[in-house]
Computed example of a mutant assay.
Amino acid sequence: MHGEYKVPGGKLVVVDLDVVDGVLANFRLAGDFFLEPDDAIDLINAAVNGLPASADATTIAAAVREALPEDAQLLGFAPESVATAIRRSLTSAADWRDFDWQIIHSRAVSPRLHLALDEVLTTEVGLGHRGPTLRIWEWDESAVVIGSFQSLKNEVDLEQARAHGFDVVRRISGGGAMLMEKGSIITYSLYVPAELVQGMTFAESYAYLDDWVLIALQGLGIAATYKPLNDITSPSGKIGGAAQKRLGSGGVLHHVTMSYDMDGELMARVLRIGREKLSDKGTTSAAKRVDPLRSQTGLERSEIIDAMKATFISLTGAVPGEITEAEYARAEELVAEKFATAAWLNRVP
């Protein structure tokens, strides 16, 4: 069996192995990482051989770490990276280039239709009715988008939201509330089959699916990094955040909102961001946590999006795509049935 894992922000880890009578055998580690001392690779190989094929990533990583000498230096990877590559080999996980990707960057639509399209397109990818897709959103109005499990009254000042022209909607993924001011954000969704993140922990899948946009931002001169669990950040401040939802069809939704420009005072008026949420951030102001892409690059929003698309194409071979009329129609039905209803918005009052 063969498995590969590109460590986000790091190096490629490659494993080859056999499974004999339920245990790992003939294990060989390779990659473009750095490892000292030189014979530490033999110690890692020996530690993995003989482990049960059913061992989870935590068990494998612990065995690798235990086998390493105290002075071992692992650069560009970690014991957890080896474990992830092994689990991906055992589950026949796929790689980005194993799929025919599409990029959709179509007309501006309402916030509710965007959320419905996320559910429709994720379902379609999971069922195999469309290939993996990157969709970049364009907005026809501003909105506050709250997470699936957030309390509406605790997160949003509805009176202020209405006064400033923000629709208030609830998405299917978890995470926190986002102030989506038209023209001031960059939002995109990835719709992928579960095979792409097979063998990864939930946290690893966030980093893995964010890696391409970090490469794009770094190409623009931004020292962008991934901060667990779901933030994209830089030395100047937070850039954006991600959220995921896994559907029964086998599709995985990973969507990200990044701040292009922002009005910190407006955000503070519309969102109820409590002291507890900020307590581990080292600041008393949510606005001070964020440093938008406009101030970091001086580029137009469209220029940043073009750079993102170019990077994604270079990494995946993606081609332009479109949302079908049937997909739009199903999304409109979901708006009426779900996303525009008071029952959905108030599912957590």
Rank of each mutant, 00 (worst) to 15 (best):
F202C: 00
S285A: 06
S314T: 13
G248H: 11
W96F: 13
G76L: 03
R135Y: 10
L75M: 04
G3K: 07
Q198H: 10
S54D: 15
K153D: 11
A85H: 06
W344N: 10
A307V: 01
V319K: 14
N45M: 09
R269K: 15
T284D: 15
L217F: 14
V15H: 05
D291Y: 04
D42L: 12
A268Q: 13
R289Q: 15
S189T: 01
S234E: 02
E327T: 12
E36G: 04
T187D: 08
G321M: 07
D98R: 07
T341V: 09
D42F: 05
D39R: 10
L266A: 11
K238Q: 06
A61V: 06
S189R: 08
S314H: 03
E325R: 09
R275P: 15
Y191Q: 02
I104L: 10
V169I: 11
D21E: 15
D211N: 09
A161M: 11
D38Y: 03
D32G: 02
L75C: 00
I304P: 07
A203V: 14
E80M: 11
V192K: 10
L127H: 11
A342E: 15
E124K: 05
D167K: 14
A242N: 15
G50M: 02
R135W: 14
V120L: 06
N45D: 06
E333T: 13
G321A: 11
T123C: 01
G128P: 05
H2G: 01
G174P: 00
R269H: 09
Q160W: 12
E141V: 02
Q244S: 09
P111M: 10
L43Q: 13
Q296K: 09
I273H: 01
D39W: 07
A268F: 03
T59E: 14
P52K: 05
G165C: 13
T187A: 10
K281A: 06
H114Y: 00
E322K: 14
S54M: 01
S234H: 03
H114G: 03
L271I: 06
Q198M: 12
Y226S: 03
K153I: 04
L158V: 02
D100H: 12
D71F: 14
T297E: 10
S142R: 02
L90K: 04
Y226A: 03
L90E: 08
S234M: 04
A207H: 15
A242L: 04
H114K: 07
L51I: 01
E325D: 15
A307S: 15
E332R: 12
A194N: 07
I146L: 14
L127P: 01
M200H: 02
L121W: 09
D18G: 00
W96P: 06
D157V: 00
R272L: 13
S81H: 14
W96V: 03
I60Q: 11
I136N: 12
I146R: 12
V13F: 13
G241D: 15
G76T: 03
P69M: 07
A224N: 10
A286L: 05
G321P: 02
A94R: 11
P79L: 09
V48I: 13
N346A: 01
R130E: 11
A268N: 14
